[in-house]
Amino acid sequence: MLYNLPYITVAVVIAIGLYAMLYKRNLIKIVIGLSLIESGVNLFLVSLGYVQGGIAPIYTNAPKTEMVLPTPQALTLTSIVIGVATTAMLLSFCIVIYRHYGTLDSEKVRRLRG
């Protein structure tokens, strides 16, 4: 049970992010929920590649032990940068919506206005 603690953490973080995306009406909070889901996925990828007692796959002054798998870490690096790009895009949309409608409430920006 406690052995799988990182996966349980992944489930909890993704559930919190989904809760924020479903129940909150503020657009900034929806973006925060999306970032939380993204963090959960990143944590899942990194913990998939963990080897018991391993060190980071870097040979500079490394002790002679096992190393964790490097490919999930490279994929997580890609995922983090793309997440930053997505978040910047969404926040700029939030700024434009606030200027246009005067509010960030997703119920109020739904009506059409010329």
Binding site: Y3, N4, Y7, L48, G49, Y50, V51, L69
Partner: peptide, 14 residues
């Protein structure tokens, strides 16, 4: 957790 199954590609890289 801690014992990944298919590690051929990663051990080749390492």
């Amino acid at each position: 957790f801690g014992e990944p199954k298919y590690t051929d590609m990663d051990s080749y890289f390492i």
